[in-house]
């Protein structure tokens, strides 16, 4: 299952459509890093609103995405984690430490714009 990556100015937006397999997640990770390089993006939003399960693999992939993109000088924010999913994640011990999170797409964009301003 392909994850569409949308370019919106300096920001890339990846929206998870439904349940993703490990292969899909890895594909997404590679794709995002490549596109950040290609478009010289300053920020990435990963929208996981549609994800109903976030297990250790998905969580680790999100962390890797965030860290690799930071190495490219850009910021990542994960948006749309559902309340039940967040509860299950902390039970599992998955807290996405060091990764920025926001309520939804709108909040994620506001977060990135704020970040860019502080850098400029």
């Amino acid at each position: 299952m392909e994850v569409p990556i949308l370019k919106q100015g300096e920001v890339l937006i990846a929206t998870f459509q439904a349940a993703l397999s490990d292969a899909d997640l890895e594909h997404l990770r590679r794709g995002l890093v490549q596109q950040v390089v290609r478009f010289r993006s300053r920020g990435v939003i990963v929208d996981v609103t549609a994800m109903d399960v976030m297990d250790s693999f998905a969580s680790r992939t999100l962390r890797e995405i965030s860290h690799m993109i930071r190495l490219r000088g850009a910021e990542t924010v994960i948006v749309g984690i559902q309340p039940e999913v967040a509860f299950a994640m902390v039970q599992l011990g998955l807290t996405l430490e060091g990764v920025a999170t926001a309520l939804d797409l709108e909040e994620g964009l506001a977060y990135l714009i704020e970040k860019f301003k502080n850098i400029d």
Binding site: M54, Q82, E84, F87
Partner: peptide
């Protein structure tokens, strides 16, 4: 909530 815990 429980269904999510079970699926996870």
């Amino acid at each position: 909530g429980d269904a999510t815990l079970i699926a996870t």
